[in-house]
Design a protein around this nucleic acid. Structure first.
Lengths: 249, 249
DNA sequence: CGAAAATTTGAAGAATATCAACGACGGTGG
DNA sequence: CCACCGTCGTTGATATTCTTCAAATTTTCG
């Protein structure tokens, strides 16, 4: 049940370190956080909409998403996760989940009990503030997605989300310059962008023809970052990075 | 500069009271919160995207919205406020604003300095948790909007947002049974729903013909709440109300 | 009353969805 | 190692939603 995760590999600590320098005590508290680590295959539900969980899930590796379903069963992905994210951290204060979370690629996930998180926040105010901050950044990303889906056309919309994913991966040290592994299918992009698979496919071809992206298997290469940013009207401000220039330049 | 607001009229206290019972000390702390009260006409910017404010704005009365602009200058409204909301509460932890906030109708707004909010949160953990919770509910609403804009068609989309607004107003005691004052133009709905004014107009006519809504001036009447909910695929879970049955039944 | 803002209407066009099929690719079992 | 199978990506033809543009009408408000 209690499987401490090896320090070097805990992406939550890495993420917090990118915001401020942890004291030794704070780091110890985080390392001592009990966590049940589980390995998942792709397309497995981690939690479901309507659940009332007493724990939250930290994505340690791999890709996952939060999603909702319409009455007719159509899926809207409302966020992609990057390692270090806790896609249901809100359940710490909101009892019922209003989204499901499921793996997209094979994933490693760490479940943390809410009472352990409450203890952590009570004892370490800076960590509490940092976690609050993380949920606020999630909200900022949702706002940008509303804008993306509401007011940008398919071509721009797709370029934008590719920019976002690349920058977020780079911020966690998970992408080289302008190349990354992106095990997200066109159908999943469609569900995230409010489009159909067919249309995502066509817009992706346009991006390729325009020389803005290259794809090979799951590998995304961005030959001209400036042009892709321009095509996607991408301004990383909303990600509230500490070091935007290193990561989004 | 320091204009304490009369207790009965502070909708923030009302909102927190709907979550849990404030102790006398907590209520005193909230009443003592220094606040600069400002009256605004409609369509006035309260804060702008890119600002780095040292205060947040509590909407005391009237309607406002948070919005973003595309490169081409098209507006996407990402949230409507209801009195008691603090649409830029996130600026407490995120330095740069990623949205603007502007009034829609004449508004009364209370500006609260960040250091006062930090003091309040430091001294009163339950209030801090409640404010965190409020930002989490905002995020839940953004998620629902991503879904609304991404996966529902115009007719459903409009019905959904009308349901949301009515329920949120009722939760604050600002709407009778199924009637409310809604000083939101069709153009503003269009900007919130990612549609054009023309299309909003046509969908609104359809809702009227179907007998789901009636409008007269700013007054919205919902003759058949169950049918409107059904048309909008509206499930209030995402609003995380304490008393959903009173308010959204 | 008069001007500005908001709503409404019509016609034409663009973006995107839908449907159906085919090809490519990776993994699995014989 | 190859044949099979399921998933994913791709393509074409057609249908629908929604936009655009321009103008008329109604409402609001000083």
């Amino acid at each position: 049940m209690h499987t401490p995760f090896h320090p070097e590999y805990n992406p939550l600590i890495r993420k917090l370190e990118s915001i401020f320098t942890l004291t030794d005590d704070e780091r110890q508290a985080l390392l001592g956080l009990p966590m049940q680590v589980v390995a998942l295959k792709e397309n497995q539900d981690i939690v479901r909409e309507g659940d009332r969980p007493n724990r939250s899930c930290l994505i340690l590796s791999g890709f996952a998403c939060a999603y909702k379903l319409t009455a007719a069963g159509r899926r809207q992905i409302v966020s992609f996760t990057v390692p270090g994210d806790i896609p249901d951290l809100q359940s710490l204060h909101l009892k019922v989940l209003d989204t499901g979370v499921s793996s997209i690629s094979p994933c490693s996930v760490g479940f943390i009990q809410h009472y352990d998180l409450h203890d952590l926040c009570g004892s370490w105010p800076r960590i509490a503030a940092a976690l609050w901050r993380e949920t606020l950044i999630d909200a900022a990303i949702f706002r940008e997605w509303v804008m993306n889906v509401g007011r940008r056309e398919g071509y721009v919309r797709l370029a934008h989300i590719l920019c976002e994913l690349l920058v977020r991966l780079r911020a966690m040290g998970l992408a080289e310059d302008h190349v990354c592994e992106l095990p997200i299918t066109q159908g999943e992009f469609a569900d995230a962008l409010g489009m159909t698979t067919v249309h995502v496919n066509r817009m992706m071809q346009q991006l390729r023809v325009a020389g803005l992206i290259q794809t090979k298997g799951n590998r995304l290469t961005v030959p001209d970052w400036e042009k892709l940013k321009e095509a996607g009207e991408f301004d990383p401000t909303y990600l509230h990075l500490e070091n935007p220039d290193e990561v989004a330049a």
